[in-house]
Amino acid sequence: MTTTLPRPSLDVRRADERFTTEISWLDSKHSFSFGRHHDPANTHHGLLLVNNDDVVRPGFGFDTHPHRDMEIVTWVMQGSLVHQDSTGHNGVIYPGLAQRMSAGTGILHSEKNDSWRLAGDVHDEPVHFVQMWVVPDESGITPGYEQLEIDGELLSGGLVTVASGMPAHADAAAIRIGNRYAALHAARLRPGQSVELPEAPFLHLFVPRGAVALEGAGALGTGDAVRFTATGGQRVTATEPAEILVWEMHAAIAA
């Protein structure tokens, strides 16, 4: 991990430029190298290694699999995702619920779109979620899990700190992550509403749904992302109902 100051830049990545994994039950778009998709020039930005935009069909999901030494934040846009892990945590993640899993020394977990029926009422919608991985600043920690509902805070239309390990956000973050140089913010914006991005050595802006205009760069649509280096302070304005996810990072993975 390094805190060396980089040169200023702004790199727009369009939705259709992402790696794609499509199978019968999964439509997954990868902002960075992931699985069988590898590009040595596109492995991470700042501390962010994974930004996967997933849609899972009803009744399917990811079977039990391992992780180690990674901070994993899951953000659901539509539907619900059932989580179970080897530390005994289980629950349902839904829109407006912040969830973090610290893999640490090693953890097994599964994530499923469990359709269910009650009194003849069938709930079988796809689940759409974004899963993001950042490296921890300390390896070998005890695995952990945390979740908290922040739907009410998102109604403000401003940037809400979803997850952070930064001391500056000690009282503002919904959930904690094991990296003191990183924070995730989210905003739900109505047309005409805008927010100002934080300033940091590294920022990653992702638009999982809707459309916005970024000051100095123009229109961004669903699935578009921007990688900022040594900049920030630009305004993001919704041109239709939209949601944005912003990683603020004050260090990077050492080359």
Rank of each mutant, 00 (worst) to 15 (best):
S110Q: 02
R188N: 09
P167Y: 08
H30P: 00
R235K: 13
P191E: 10
Y181F: 15
R180W: 11
S9V: 12
H169R: 12
T237L: 03
E138A: 15
L184A: 12
K29A: 11
R68E: 14
G192V: 07
V12P: 02
T20A: 15
W133H: 05
A170P: 00
V135L: 08
A173W: 02
R100K: 14
V160C: 02
G104S: 09
G232H: 02
S86Y: 05
N52P: 00
Q131D: 07
R209W: 15
L159E: 01
V122D: 13
G91I: 03
L245K: 01
F62S: 11
G216N: 10
Y181Q: 08
H109K: 03
N52D: 08
V212M: 03
G104P: 12
H83P: 01
A200E: 05
G152S: 08
H89Y: 10
M77L: 09
A217E: 13
V246S: 03
H109Y: 06
E111P: 00
Q147S: 14
G59Y: 00
R18K: 15
E215K: 09
H30F: 02
W75N: 12
M1P: 08
D85S: 09
G61P: 02
D16I: 03
G157E: 04
A119W: 12
D69C: 15
D53Q: 07
G223E: 06
V135H: 04
S164K: 06
G59S: 04
A172Q: 15
D121Q: 10
P58Q: 01
H89V: 14
G96A: 06
G88Y: 09
H89Q: 11
G233N: 11
A211L: 04
A251C: 04
E215M: 10
V56N: 00
A173T: 14
Q131I: 01
E199H: 13
P6W: 14
N179L: 05
A230Y: 15
G91C: 04
R18A: 07
H109R: 04
L159V: 01
D69P: 11
D27I: 15
A200D: 03
H109L: 03
G61A: 12
G88K: 06
L245H: 05
F62W: 13
M70A: 15
V195W: 00
S9N: 07
M77A: 07
E138I: 13
M249Q: 13
L148K: 14
A242S: 08
P126S: 04
V127E: 01
P95R: 07
E243K: 11
A103P: 01
